[in-house]
Structure formats: C-alpha cells, structure tokens
Computed example of a mutant assay.
Amino acid sequence: MNQTRRDVFQAISDPTRREIIGLLARHSLNLNKVADHFTMSRPAVAKHIRILTECGLVVVQTRGRETFCQADLKGLKQVSEWANTYQEFWNDKLDALERFLDEDPSDENL
C-alpha cells in the first residue's frame, strides 16, 4: 500500500484535527467515540483521522471489530522546535527593547 506521508504542519492546520489530537491525547478512543464529538459525518471524521495517521500523529489499531485511535505526540516535537525558534527571536527583540527603554537619555549629554 502506497501511503502519502503528510506534513505535521498540514495536519495541525485544521481546527478539527487539532481537536481530535486533544481528545486522543487523553486516552485511546474507538472511531465511533471520536466521531460522536463532532457534528460532521463519520466518513468526514475518518478522513481527518486518516490525515493524522499519515503524518504520524495518530495510530490506528483494529481490535476485533472495532477500530481504536490513539495520539502519538512525538510528531509534535517538530512543531515545538519550530515555534521555539520564533520564541527565541521575540525574546531577543523584547530584551533589546527593554534595554533601549531603560537607557537614561540624560546620559547622552555627558
């Protein structure tokens, strides 16, 4: 089976998929229980689950006649590292602004 590997950023760009990750981060749920949290059709929820699975954020296992989903949050490390880059950038900018504002303008006349 040839599966397309999706980007984790693509997966979390959708609010429904973020909500699914939040649900599954707490505990494993069968597909029907996940779908019960949404007003959309079960096939639409299954499509979101498939996208999350393709990017490695959800693991799907069949147990008997039921399909269970659980979050695999290791994939979010890439998102965290990317966001931390910008956090460091803004911290540096805010530190520079603080230093600028703390400068005493009367010191320039000395």
Rank of each mutant, 00 (worst) to 15 (best):
M1Y: 14
M1P: 13
N2R: 13
Q3D: 14
Q3Y: 14
Q3G: 09
Q3E: 14
T4G: 08
R5F: 09
R5G: 02
R5E: 13
R5V: 14
R6K: 12
D7T: 10
D7Y: 07
V8L: 12
V8Q: 12
F9N: 08
Q10T: 13
I12A: 01
S13D: 15
P15D: 14
P15E: 10
T16R: 15
R18P: 02
I21R: 03
G22D: 11
L24I: 07
L24N: 04
A25G: 03
R26L: 15
H27Q: 14
H27R: 15
H27L: 11
S28I: 05
N30P: 05
N32A: 13
K33G: 01
V34G: 08
A35T: 02
D36G: 13
H37G: 10
T39P: 08
T39S: 15
M40V: 13
M40I: 03
S41G: 10
R42H: 11
A44F: 04
A44N: 06
V45L: 02
V45R: 04
V45Y: 09
V45Q: 07
A46N: 08
A46E: 08
K47S: 15
K47P: 00
K47E: 12
K47A: 15
H48K: 08
H48P: 12
I49M: 01
R50D: 11
R50K: 07
I51S: 14
T53Y: 10
E54Y: 10
E54A: 15
E54C: 12
G56L: 02
G56V: 06
G56S: 01
L57H: 10
V58G: 10
V58R: 11
V59A: 08
V59K: 06
V60F: 03
V60H: 05
Q61N: 13
R63S: 09
G64V: 05
G64K: 07
E66C: 00
C69Q: 03
C69N: 06
C69Y: 06
Q70S: 15
A71K: 09
D72C: 11
K74W: 04
K74C: 06
K74L: 12
G75F: 04
L76F: 06
K77V: 09
Q78L: 02
Q78E: 09
V79H: 01
V79L: 06
S80N: 11
E81Y: 12
E81I: 00
W82G: 07
T85C: 06
Y86W: 12
Y86A: 01
E88R: 13
E88I: 12
F89D: 03
F89Q: 07
F89A: 02
W90T: 11
W90V: 14
N91M: 04
D92C: 11
K93C: 09
K93F: 05
L94K: 09
L94Y: 05
L94F: 00
D95Y: 07
D95W: 00
D95V: 10
A96E: 02
A96T: 05
A96I: 04
A96C: 03
L97V: 02
E98D: 04
E98A: 05
E98R: 03
F100L: 09
F100W: 01
F100S: 05
L101E: 10
L101N: 05
D102Y: 03
D102G: 04
E103F: 02
P105G: 10
P105T: 04
S106M: 03
S106N: 01
D107I: 02
E108I: 04
N109F: 03
N109V: 01
N109R: 00
L110V: 02
L110K: 00
